[in-house]
Write a protein that binds this DNA or RNA. Structure first.
Lengths: 198, 198, 198, 198
DNA sequence: AATGAATGAGAGTTCATTCAT
DNA sequence: TATGAATGAACTCTCATTCAT
């Protein structure tokens, strides 16, 4: 059930839904329009998806999965903690900025009642390595002892803000600015002991 | 056009809409239900609002305005920069945690296509004093020289994360934890020179 | 109940209704719009008229009455039959072309189910003199012995066609053309005996 | 796009609309009633027609087309001018009297703002042969040199008046009376030279 | 006489979904 | 697997009318 093993039509439906829903919103995106723009019959959508909610849910899962995979790219546990932190940060930034539509979709639907809490929970597995990384950081004294959800929310908000800036930008964010943003983020979670570490 | 000068029925409609939409989402909240639960006739809604979108838009504006006012409560420019920073942070936290339904509504609709960019822009005025505060902080060397949007987004994300934790909580956030969260936030935006300042 | 003894507001309502209904049609002319454009409150309309249908009906009657009066202007029974015929014809033509909005209204509503057959019948009295004139013409041998309704319909259609031409016109109808139209009309109803009479 | 190539349901919708609208008028004929009496679901109407106005417009076009075809039945250019004139006249009379509902519909909607001027213009092609016939009549000296629109309007009014008489009638119009009506019509448009021609 | 906020039945229309092909 | 005509419940919104003031 990953994105590469999908039948063509199913993929076309998912991609069209992503685009239309991000542009117009959920309820301004009728299934008939999805069908038309995806080049399939209305009924075909119902071969692949139970109903509209499940279509959105599956799209959400797929993107979360893709985001999780991108997040872990080039992971190298032999690197120092802060270098690994920086890599994860950049990976997320890259996913957001290189997939702006997916980014906007996830922004919109992460807090929406369309996504059931089950769906939300199921997709947490893709982020386990990063969660573990933060937890181990607390144990090893790199990261402040704050609730995980707060740390994750904080970091996510920072990457999101930087990504928005980049996407809004003319000009886009420079490498220096990106480094400053990562440092800002790191400073908000690192312990005193690691002030000069980065 | 502020919340205290509204006719009773208009206020009832707005409050009911806020509650229902946050619970069920925009398109699972028919106007007929809003009317029923607000205790007015369906047509009455259209006496006060052009259509459903404009109703949501006005609700959004009203809440943004209210949030802006809460944000500035007890503002005291004679205090040190970091104390003022802390006050704004807490004010926002208080608004979020004491108005959980409004908080959830704003979370959902701040990134949604239901809110036009005009509406979004119009409501920025309520935040001008805080924006000015951050800008002056950059000038006086308290705050890092990073793009305003990034700083604002970062801070907003942190307060939001803390508020969510508090609202999800059993137990709610302790005063110590709140202080730690504010410190985390401050550390991400303050300059090196003010490391010991807080 | 003639047009000169009406209270100002009632007259304003009637005139506004005439204009709006002719421009937009019956069901694209809400009472609220009539009220607004007439400069009165919605409720005021219901002081003067029982309901929308009765308002249209009264408007129709008033115009039919006005048309009937114009039709008989300068009536002179001492003139020859054909000269009298010509006068009636021109009077109707003048009413249509000098009151184009009323003309269009009457055209639209003369065949519409909005006007009850009672209303239609009631207003026939204003045309009695002309009907009598035609009937007497049949008796005296000026007019062919054809059913009255046919004769009236025929003549009405001819004046209507001429009026439309005039109103559509650049250029408007010349006096010569008008005379030719009247002659055409006369030729369709006069008897053989009066071929050279006109 | 002619009446014989329509899907069954579309035809049922058109026929039902014709009947209901002629009986009750446009705005006393809800789409739900059309659906019910046509034996289709409400949504099905919108599969075939964009909206109510377009449904009326298409109905109007179809009937104008049908009327145009009936008008030209048995056309025989080898006949004398006045015989051809008489044929057209009778054809129109037959269409009106044999299709009384269509006749009433066309009467009501020909002058109504529901029908756009584009729709009106588009359907003129079906009458071109008759228009040409009248124009050639002017050239050959059979018909008076009067504006085409006036001639057409005049003739149309006469056939309409005769048809109404027939439909109202008990008794219906006799053949003699019909001939007299046609003669009346002919006398209003023919030149002096053809007085004895008919 | 005049107002206009309020009503609520009912209008036109949409759209997720089905099912015979 | 794929189609798309057909469904009909449910939606947003309108508007003739009322009535307390």
């Amino acid at each position: 059930m990953n994105i590469h093993s999908l039948p063509d039509k199913k993929l076309a439906i998912l991609e069209t839904t992503l685009r239309l829903i991000t542009e117009n919103g959920f309820h301004a995106t009728p299934m008939s329009l999805v069908a038309k723009e995806a080049g399939v019959a209305a009924g075909t959508i119902y071969h692949y998806f139970e109903n509209k909610n499940q279509l959105i849910g599956e799209l959400y899962s797929l993107l979360k999965q893709k985001m999780g995979i991108t997040l872990l790219q080039n992971k190298d546990t032999s690197e120092s903690y802060s270098v690994q932190f920086s890599l994860f940060w950049k990976n997320l930034f890259i996913y957001f900025t290189q997939n702006p539509i997916e980014f906007r979709f996830l922004e919109q639907y992460s807090t929406s009642p369309f996504i059931s809490s089950e769906t939300r929970t199921e997709n947490l597995i893709y982020y386990k390595p990063v969660i573990d990384f933060i937890e181990s950081g607390i144990e090893t004294g790199h990261i402040r002892s704050l609730p995980l959800d707060f740390l994750v929310g904080t970091l996510f908000g920072q990457v999101t803000s930087a990504a928005k800036l980049h996407l809004a930008g003319t000009p886009e964010i420079s490498d220096d600015l990106l480094d400053a943003a990562i440092k800002s983020s790191w400073d908000s979670v690192r312990t005193e002991s690691f002030s000069d570490y980065y």
